[in-house]
Design a binder for these strands. Structure first.
Lengths: 144, 144
DNA sequence: CTTGTTGCAACCTTCGTTGTTACGACTGCG
DNA sequence: CGCAGTCGTAACAACGAAGGTTGCAACAAG
């Protein structure tokens, strides 16, 4: 699977902004976050734009502009972030419709749909158990 | 996420072979399965090759050749299939190493690693609860 | 020997993600 | 008002994964 680092980078950005604000700063720039994540500022702006649409962060423009949290880290879960940055389902159906004249071709999609829905529900439940506050705590707890 | 249909197609193929064998046939050909799944026989052979390496199916060559189940559908779970056809992890870390001089850049990977491991474990547990027998039963239960 | 099927390599197309450049929009400050 | 710093966003290239396609060697039943 073309595994996806979007959730990782988004969590990185949120933890960074949260920590930076706790150090007394008003806003963080995409440039600073990009340096920490070792990527391009535009990538960060794109991701944070999706988080803004989800109401997790706010942005200011003009001189001294940048990004700030719209809510406390403790009230944000990885599920909020996941839903903001990951559009599609975890598993896909066939790219082309299977043979509807075949018993298996006809019934396989509803059958797998049921399984996949249950799994995604479980995944959401797991993601909802972890707040960004938890993530930041674990980040700071890393041994040096 | 570039969602993946490999698990779906693999389950389709296994259910098809299982049903076909119950109808009294010895082996199924990749051609027949490809017709049902509306794809190319080579795609099916590639997938079934991975399932063979995992010990789920067997293949015979020569005239009258084809694929057969190596075990009962009831003893195969979606986890077996998942592990056979999906190599990588669900979520990826940064593609480039984050800034190790930054507190967040340093601690983010271990923090997310811990979260992701827990989630993958839960996913495996869910997949292990569904046997291919369950899948075939649901396939046949689809209303016409 | 012929025939039908797998095994496998090679290549192309498509698609999603990431990286990069460019430029307009906005705003605080002098 | 003009400048400078930053966001907002479009456009495009680079890259990799997955799927589709073709071709052919290997194999085995008859």
């Amino acid at each position: 699977m073309s595994a996806n680092s979007r959730l990782t980078i988004a969590a990185h950005a949120l933890a960074w902004i949260g920590l930076y604000q706790r150090q007394g700063h008003e806003v963080a720039t995409s440039e600073q976050i990009a340096t920490s994540a070792n990527t391009n500022p535009v990538v960060i702006r794109r991701l944070l734009g999706e988080l803004r649409r989800a109401g997790l962060v706010e942005s200011r423009r003009g001189v001294g502009a940048g990004w700030s949290l719209a809510r406390e880290l403790g009230s944000m879960t990885l599920l909020d972030v996941y839903e903001a940055v990951e559009p599609g389902p975890l598993f896909a159906m066939h790219r082309t419709t299977p043979d509807q004249g075949c018993v298996v071709g006809y019934g396989i999609q509803p059958a797998m749909q049921g399984v996949y829905e249950g799994i995604e529900e479980t995944l959401r439940h797991e993601l909802a158990r972890v707040t960004l506050e938890n993530v930041l705590r674990d980040v700071l707890a890393a041994p040096r």
